[in-house]
C-alpha cells in the first residue's frame, strides 16, 4: 500500500494533468458503452423505463441468430459496402490519374473535386431522393422527354433499382475521398522508378501495373479503411432516400437498428444488434489494416 501511495506522490503532477481527460473519457465514452452493453442483456424498452432492470441474459442475442430480417440487412450491408467501395476505388483512381495529368488549373479542379464532401449526407440524401423520384424526379423527367421510356421508372421502389440509387448517392458523395488520397500518393511518388521501368522495357500500362499501382496501394488501403467504417454505419443517406423501405427492400443494418430502437422502442434488442454488427466494422478495419501494413512494409524507407 505504501508503495502505491508513494507512486502517486512521485507522479502527482502528471497524474493531476491527465486526470481531467481520463474523467471525460470515462463519462462520455466508457459509461455509455457499458450502459448500452448492459441493456443488450435486458428487455429494456424506451416507453417502459422500469424494464431496464428486466434481466433476460442472452435471449436478445439468441433471438438475433434466428432473426431473418437482421441477417438480410447484414448481408445487404456487406453487398452495399462491396459495391460502393470497389466502384469508389475505380472512379477515384481514374479521377486522380486524370487530374494528375493536368498542369493548368489543377488546384481549382482539386477544390471542385471535393465539393460532394462538403454537403451534409442528409442533404445528399434529399438531393438524390428528388433526382430519382418517379413523378417529379430529374432522371425520369429527362428520360421521358427524350422519349427513352414511356412510363416512370420506380427508382426508389424497385428492389434493385433502389439499391442502385442509394449506391449511386453514396458513391457520388465519397468518390472524392479516394481521389484525394490517391492523388496525394501520386504527388508523393518518386519519378525515378517510373523512368527506370520505362527504360527496362515497360509500356505505359506495364509501368502503371507494376510500379505505380503497388506504390499507391497503401494510400488505397487507408481510403478503404476509412470508407469501410463509413459505409458500414451508413444510415443518413439511406434513411432519407428510402427509409430502408419500401417493405424493407433497402434495409441496411443501421436503418434496422434505428427502427428497432426508436420506432419499436426495443432498446435492449437494438443494442444487441448493434454489438453484433460492430463485429463487421472490426473485421473490415482489421482486414484493411493488415493489407495496409503488408503494402507499406517495403515502401517504408523510400
Amino acid at each position: 500500500m505504501s508503495k502505491f501511495s508513494r507512486a502517486i506522490r512521485d507522479h502527482a503532477v502528471p497524474l493531476a494533468l491527465i486526470a481531467p481527460s481520463i474523467l471525460v473519457i470515462l463519462v462520455v465514452v466508457l459509461l455509455p458503452l457499458m450502459f448500452s452493453f448492459y441493456t443488450s442483456f435486458t428487455n429494456y424498452r424506451l416507453i417502459r423505463p422500469d424494464t431496464l432492470w428486466d434481466w433476460i441474459g442472452l435471449r436478445n442475442y439468441q433471438r438475433l441468430l434466428a432473426d431473418w430480417d437482421f441477417w438480410v440487412a447484414f448481408g445487404r450491408t456487406i453487398l452495399f459496402l462491396t459495391v460502393a467501395l470497389n466502384l469508389e476505388l475505380l472512379f477515384g483512381l481514374g479521377l486522380a490519374l486524370l487530374v494528375n495529368k493536368i498542369t493548368w488549373g489543377q488546384r481549382t479542379l482539386r477544390t471542385i473535386m471535393m465539393f460532394p464532401m462538403m454537403f451534409s449526407p442528409i442533404l445528399v440524401g434529399f438531393q438524390f431522393k428528388y433526382v430519382f423520384n418517379d413523378t417529379i424526379g430529374l432522371v425520369n423527367n429527362a428520360l421521358q422527354s427524350l422519349g427513352l421510356t414511356e412510363f416512370a421508372i420506380p427508382f426508389l421502389v424497385d428492389r434493385w433499382l433502389a439499391f442502385f440509387s442509394i449506391s449511386f448517392a453514396e458513391i457520388w458523395m465519397s468518390t472524392s475521398i479516394f481521389a484525394i488520397l490517391i492523388l496525394a500518393g501520386l504527388f508523393a511518388m518518386p519519378k525515378d522508378p517510373i523512368e527506370a521501368a520505362r527504360v527496362d522495357g515497360c509500356s505505359n500500362w506495364q509501368v502503371f501495373r507494376h510500379i505505380t499501382l503497388p506504390f499507391l496501394m497503401p494510400f488505397i488501403f487507408i481510403a478503404m479503411t476509412i470508407r469501410s467504417l463509413d459505409v458500414a454505419r451508413a444510415y443518413d443517406v439511406v434513411d432519407v432516400m428510402t427509409g430502408g423501405g419500401p417493405a424493407q427492400r433497402t434495409e441496411l443494418l443501421w436503418t434496422l437498428i434505428a427502427r428497432t430502437a426508436y420506432d419499436d422502442a426495443r432498446m435492449g434488442r437494438a443494442n444487441a444488434m448493434a454489438y453484433a454488427s460492430i463485429l463487421l466494422s472490426i473485421f473490415f478495419t482489421w482486414y484493411f489494416f493488415r493489407k495496409l501494413m503488408d503494402a507499406r512494409k517495403h515502401l517504408g524507407a523510400f
Binding site: 522508378p193 523512368e195 527506370a196 527504360v199 506504390f215 517495403h298
Partner: peptide, 21 residues
C-alpha cells in the same frame, strides 16, 4: 522510339530501384 524500344539500360543517380520488389 520510346525508351523500351531502344535496347538500352540506365543506372540512375538515386538508384531508382523498385521498392516493393
Amino acid at each position: 522510339l520510346p525508351p523500351r524500344k531502344r535496347n538500352i539500360s540506365m543506372v540512375f543517380q538515386n538508384y531508382a530501384l523498385y521498392p516493393h520488389m
